[in-house]
C-alpha cells in the first residue's frame, strides 16, 4: 500500500472489514459458546450467548449418548467424505485432462452434457437413484452413498479441472514429452503440481459437500449405525421423548465444524488460486 493513503479511508476500510468478519464468525462463535452451557441453560432464550453460570462439557458427553455413539458416526462421515474426495479427484483429474488436451469426436457435446447436469435439482432424481442403488445392492451402504456424492460432485469438478489444465501452456507438456516423459509421467510429474490449486479446490468442495450432506444420507441409509453426522445431529434435535436437547445440538454443530475449518485454513491459499485459475491467462 502506498504511503499517501488517506487515513480516513484506511480507517473506514478496516472498520468495514472488521464488521464483515464479525458478521461471518458470529454464528460459529455463538454455536460454540452455547455448546459450553449446561443443558438446562442451553434450552433458555440464547441471550447472552455465552454461559452465565458454569462452563461445562456435559453436552459433548450427552452427544456421545445418541445413536450408536458419536465416534462411530464420525467415522462413517470421515469414510464417506474421504471416499468422495479421493474418487472425485481421480475421476475429475483424468476427465479434465482428457477434455483439455485430447481431440475426440463429440468432445464438446459430451462436455456440455456433463456440465448441464448441474442444472438438474438432485432432489428430483432421488427416487430413480434410490431404485438404481437398491437394484445394485448398494442401498444402505456407505460406498453407495459415496457413489451418489461423487456423481453429484463430478460436473463441477470436471469443469474446474479442465480449466486448470487449460491454463497450463501446452508447450510445457510438449517439452516434457520431448524430454522423454510418457503421457502418464507428464501427467503425474509435470501437470499435477501445476494444477494443484485446482485439485485442492475440487477436494475442498467434495469434502464439504459430502461432510455436510443430509438428505441423501437420510434416504439411502436405513441402519442407524451407518448414519453420518448430519443425520445424527437431526436425530439429536428430534430429541428423546420429543424434547430438543439444544446443548447437544450445538456441541454436534461445533464438532462438525472443526474439520471444515482446519481444512480450509490449511488449504485456503491454493483454494483461492484455484478458483481464479484460467480467468486470466
Amino acid at each position: 500500500m502506498s504511503a499517501r493513503v488517506n487515513p480516513l479511508g484506511r480507517a473506514a476500510y478496516h472498520m468495514i472489514g472488521t464488521v464483515l468478519a464479525l458478521t461471518f464468525i458470529a454464528p460459529l462463535v455463538w454455536a460454540f459458546l452455547s455448546s459450553l452451557k449446561p443443558a438446562a441453560e442451553a434450552r433458555l432464550p440464547p441471550l447472552p450467548p455465552w454461559p452465565t453460570g458454569s462452563v461445562t462439557v456435559e453436552n459433548y458427553v450427552a452427544l456421545d449418548g445418541y445413536g450408536v455413539g458419536f465416534w462411530s458416526h464420525a467415522s462413517n462421515s470421515v469414510i464417506v467424505s474421504i471416499g468422495t474426495v479421493v474418487l472425485t479427484v481421480i475421476i475429475s483429474v483424468l476427465g479434465g485432462y482428457g477434455f483439455s488436451r485430447f481431440r475426440f469426436p463429440f468432445k464438446s457435446v459430451f462436455f456440455i452434457m456433463i456440465i448441464s447436469t448441474i442444472m438438474i435439482p438432485f432432489q428430483s432424481i432421488l427416487t430413480p437413484l434410490f431404485l438404481i442403488l437398491s437394484k445394485a445392492g448398494l442401498q444402505n451402504s456407505l460406498f453407495g452413498l459415496v457413489l451418489i456424492y461423487v456423481t453429484l460432485q463430478l460436473p463441477f469438478s470436471i469443469f474446474m479441472m479442465r480449466n486448470a489444465f487449460d491454463a497450463v501452456p501446452i508447450e510445457i507438456e510438449e517439452a516434457a514429452r520431448v524430454d522423454g516423459a510418457s503421457v502418464f509421467t507428464v501427467l503425474t510429474r509435470v501437470m499435477l503440481p501445476l494444477v494443484a490449486p485446482g485439485i485442492v479446490t475440487v477436494a475442498i468442495f467434495a469434502f464439504l459437500a459430502a461432510w455436510n450432506e443430509f438428505l441423501a444420507a437420510l434416504i439411502f441409509l436405513t441402519d442407524q449405525e451407518k448414519y453420518t453426522l448430519p443425520v445424527l445431529i437431526v436425530a439429536v434435535r428430534s430429541g428423546r421423548y420429543g424434547s430438543v436437547d439444544w446443548g447437544a445440538v450445538q456441541s454436534g454443530v461445533t464438532v462438525m465444524m472443526i474439520p471444515c475449518v482446519i481444512l480450509f485454513l490449511l488449504l485456503q491459499r491454493y483454494y483461492v488460486r484455484g478458483l481464479t485459475a484460467g480467468a486470466v491467462k
Binding site: 501452456p169 508447450e171 510445457i172 510438449e174 517439452a175 516434457a176 509435470v190 501445476l194
Partner: peptide
C-alpha cells in the same frame, strides 16, 4: 520452444 516452456 519459442515460449521457453520451462517447468514452472
Amino acid at each position: 520452444f519459442q515460449s521457453y516452456a520451462l517447468y514452472p
